[in-house]
């Protein structure tokens, strides 16, 4: 959905890998998780809790809460406010979370 612009406009952050729903994805170290997922076309990023509609990040600045994902087992994490690091495990959320952590 998003593509990186030519290299002269990049900041050359080193590449690292995260796992999204069991698939290995190459990202740039330290970038916001939501940005990395948009570049990897992880769309929709979740399904809404009321009607199960597909959703994706809307604001990228921490106010809309559309980018909620599970990160390393912790549900409802704002992907736009989370910096990626090597080995991070991400799961998309389909509908509401249950107390106790079961999807």
């Amino acid at each position: 959905m998003f593509r990186e612009v030519d290299a002269s406009r990049l900041d050359e952050a080193p590449a690292c890998h995260i796992e999204v729903d069991g698939h290995k994805v190459a990202v740039r170290e330290g970038e916001p998780l939501a940005a990395a997922l948009l570049k990897a076309a992880v769309i929709p990023m979740r399904h809404s809790v009321v009607s199960g509609e597909p959703r994706a990040p809307y604001c990228m600045m921490g106010v809309c809460f559309e980018c909620l994902v599970e990160v390393d087992g912790v549900p409802n994490v704002q992907a736009c406010m989370t910096s990626v690091r090597e080995g991070m495990t991400v799961r998309r959320q389909h509908g509401a979370r249950q107390i106790g952590g079961q999807a």
Binding site: M1, R3, E4, R28, E31, P32, P44, A56, M60, M61
Partner: peptide, 25 residues
Amino acid sequence: GWTLPGVMNAGAAQIMMKVGGAVPE
């Protein structure tokens, strides 16, 4: 239709440029 994936704030796209060095395809 503003809740559809593929719809975001213009400022959000600008943040993608600032932090992700990326633009929509």
